[in-house]
Design a protein around this nucleic acid. Structure first.
Lengths: 64, 64
DNA sequence: TGAAAATGTCAAAAACATTTTACATTATAA
DNA sequence: TTATAATGTAAAATGTTTTTGACATTTTCA
């Protein structure tokens, strides 16, 4: 599943570390998700969307 | 995390088994998610939302 | 250029999601 | 009432996400 995290994070002028801290996950988790190593849990998806002032449906592009 | 799956599923007149088959997961998975035993993966959340003609953001109510 | 910040990556372990099988309970309808 | 469908639940096994710690590479900027 693709996502727009990197783009929105840069727009928000946050580093991976800052976004991670805001979501209470590790920097490596944010990095892995941005680079499509795996998908976040649903709760984390909501947390990231909220911090980036977006929505889960806008931030993630599911596989059809 | 709460969700509205049971309500929308009934509106769509689907059994847990039918929804499960449409999502390609087991009936127990749908049952567990409806009863808040655990949250679905992000991909499954999108699949359920799509089949129930809804969105992830409408179907799930994240913990704040 | 060179130092510091940011990002990428790996491995092992912990935490969480899903499946399968099986059985119990509840709801529906003939 | 009785059969059937639907739902709830549990344990064990498997697969996926996240953490931590560590180190390498790339980017930024003074």
């Amino acid at each position: 599943m693709e996502n727009q995290i990197k783009e929105l994070r840069k727009t928000a002028k946050l580093s991976q570390e800052e976004l991670a801290r805001a979501c209470k996950v590790s920097r490596q988790t944010i990095n892995a998700i941005e680079n499509n190593k795996y998908d976040p849990t649903l709760q984390l998806a909501f947390d990231i969307a909220s911090i980036l002032d977006s929505t889960v449906d806008d931030l993630f592009v599911p596989k059809m």
